[in-house]
């Protein structure tokens, strides 16, 4: 244990990786809260899968493998995917869930085509794109962390700035419109931030599992509080906790992939929260029901009510 803390503070690589994972957890937890509350949990899944062809195309077009270039490609592809899902569901009889499924899988399939195509190219520079599938925390370097933290700070700052507007959008969009707020624009900004949060996590967690980082911290946090601000803070904390513990696990246990480890950690938090959270938690509710029944019986009530 002590050694672990030693490593966390003094082992340069581990510290870098853990910092990156923590930053990603904070941002995805905070933005994911809004996605979950707006019933857009699975949109996050579609966006993250759709990032793959964006990454591949960015590489094909620029020949550059730096994180900033690839992640820009991911962000653009994610935005296009969101736009397509909304329009397929809005303009035709195809329903939202089908639209999500199609965009998610077709974009991902196209991404694989590009990836395999790139692998066949006689170009020494091509290796390493696969790490975006499951993420590869170990490969994260200081510069990546700086990019992640920079993007994350921008996202969090905007979230703070437009807090009131985002809350209005999530709770009662029509009411916002009647007060004169351009709700479509606010929606666009929030969705862009969601795309940003996803992009930040791709290097560490990968496109396949990224959606869990949006959904799980938010769902866990929701159980402990009825206050949106506290929920968002708590989700950020849970996200960071899972991110750091997952990467630490992956670096201390041999052949433990980071992305899946982070997902298991965050899912563990969900289970804990759903079971043990005061008031909302399953055990709390069961206990309350039990006590009520006891009291009812003590008052001489019939058993089978």
């Amino acid at each position: 244990m002590i050694e672990l803390f030693n490593n966390l503070f003094f082992d340069h690589t581990l510290r870098t990786v853990a910092l990156g994972a923590g930053a990603l957890g904070i941002v995805s937890g905070a933005l994911g809260s809004f996605a979950v509350l707006r019933r857009q949990s699975l949109l996050g899944d579609a966006i993250s899968h759709a990032a793959l062809p964006g990454i591949a195309l960015a590489f094909l077009l620029t020949g550059n493998k730096s994180a900033l270039v690839l992640l820009s490609g991911a962000a653009i592809a994610g935005a296009i995917a969101t736009w397509l899902v909304t329009n397929i569901a809005g303009l035709t009889r195809v329903k939202y869930d089908s639209a999500l499924g199609i965009i998610l899988s077709v974009f991902f399939g196209f991404g694989l085509v590009l990836l395999t195509y790139i692998q066949k190219q006689p170009n020494a520079n091509q290796a390493g794109l696969e790490k975006y599938l499951f993420g590869q925390a170990a490969a994260i370097v200081e510069k990546d962390v700086l990019i992640m933290a920079g993007l994350g700070l921008v996202a969090l700052f905007l979230l703070f700035l437009f807090w009131k507007e985002f809350k209005l959008l999530s709770f009662d969009r029509d009411f916002g419109t009647t007060m004169g707020y351009p709700m479509a624009l606010i929606d666009f900004v929030l969705t862009t931030l969601l795309v940003l949060a996803i992009v930040i996590g791709l290097q560490t967690v990968g496109v396949v599992l990224m959606s869990a980082m949006l959904i799980a911290p938010a769902v866990a946090a929701r159980q402990w509080t009825d206050n949106l601000a506290i929920m968002v803070l708590l989700a950020a904390f849970f996200g960071a906790l899972a991110g750091v513990s997952g990467t630490v696990a992956s670096s201390t246990i041999s052949r433990m992939p980071a992305g899946p480890a982070i997902v298991v950690a965050v899912s563990f938090l969900v289970v804990l929260s759903i079971l043990f959270a005061p008031r909302r938690g399953v055990i709390w509710q069961r206990g309350r029901d039990y006590l009520l029944r006891q009291r009812f019986r003590a008052l001489g009530g019939k058993k089978d009510v």
Partner: peptide, 30 residues
């Protein structure tokens, strides 16, 4: 999960399958 009324249905889907899949990937890689 959905029936606990603590989790929306789409979020429930988005929690369950990444977890099961992650466990599988960890087992495979270990």
């Amino acid at each position: 999960l959905h029936q606990t009324r603590l989790v929306y249905e789409d979020a429930a889907i988005g929690i369950v399958f990444p977890l099961l899949f992650s466990i599988a990937v960890i087992l495979i890689s270990r």
